[in-house]
Design a protein around this nucleic acid. Structure first.
Lengths: 168, 168
DNA sequence: TTTTTCTTTCAATAAATATTGAAAGTTTAG
DNA sequence: CTAAACTTTCAATATTTATTGAAAGAAAAA
């Protein structure tokens, strides 16, 4: 396969993979484009490459920067901004873990705590089913939270080491 | 907090949590409703409880059954079907892991393999950036795949044991 | 300063996704 | 068998989410 074609397919696939996971297609595609580019890319180039509008490119680039997955770069002699993405997939994984933990898991745990105690007879079948289910989810969430902490703080070696240990 | 209120909040939260993760809101809400119910529930009750149409209830219940998260039950003396959900969060996790692996990870790995070899000079900067990035994602994907296999086949004890080991 | 280049914003619009509800299909009871 | 109870389907519709593009804003050059 030729590079240009492979790039195009990867960008398309990453986009649809992302939208399967609640990440907007364009944002995932821009991320893919930047990850497989050896050089910083301008907003203009992103627009041309993905056939999207200036506004769309700008908004999604900003969001990627918010996530910490993309950085702005100034290129000497150039007036406009350029963008680069973190290419190390382990670092990308850590960043996504950190952000989703902060944005989703932590609020969810707070919420579960807030509904975990209900008034009434502890032996009541309905109350028991409810509190047991919530407690189980909470326990899973708390342990996931702690595991993510380890992952986020981890060295690259720890990551691959743990992955391999899990398989053995 | 009173049971009815806590239930309502949990169903709403589970719904919006789900839609953050590419799972349709209603499907997640039905799943939540069934998880916290001590008794099997009919389609009629699902409709009334969540204020949704018969068609919507039917389609999403079918999808939950396809995933293996919900089962049909015949109640003696009743003509209509009833539904129950797996309540053990570990089993739910295993089912979701199994299904997403099959539906998303495995096709993605096949795809990455198909684009991993591109024609041209291996030392070319652009080709190197592309193949290195794809190789990294592929490696992560393959190890995730194997870890999920272990999780899917695992006993309950293995699961909590591993979770705890990861924290220590 | 004024002009040019580039970036940001956001209301309008388009596209994607979910939901409805009525009709058709199926199963069980009488 | 026929009728009643229940389930499924899917075209039409509504809702949600993403995208556009033009205007306003900012920064650098002239």
């Amino acid at each position: 396969m030729v590079l240009q074609e492979a790039k195009k397919e990867f960008i398309a696939a990453w986009g649809s993979f992302g939208s399967n996971w609640g990440i907007n297609r364009t944002m995932a595609q821009i991320h893919a484009l930047l990850m497989i580019s050896s050089e910083p890319i301008s907003a203009e180039e992103v627009m041309d490459n993905l056939h999207i509008s200036r506004g769309n490119a700008n908004m999604n680039l900003r969001e990627l920067i918010n996530w910490g997955l993309v950085n702005r770069t100034i290129l000497r002699g150039e007036r406009k901004e350029f963008f680069t993405a973190e290419k190390d997939i382990f670092k990308v994984t850590r960043i996504i873990a950190r952000e989703r933990k902060k944005r989703e898991l932590e609020p969810m745990l707070k919420f579960l705590e807030s509904i975990s105690h209900v008034e009434g007879d502890t032996n009541d079948k309905d109350i028991k089913t409810f509190t047991d289910t919530i407690a189980g989810i909470k326990k899973l969430g708390e342990q996931t939270d702690k595991s993510l902490d380890k992952l986020i703080k981890a060295e690259e070696n720890w990551f691959w080491g743990t992955m391999i240990k899990l398989l053995s």
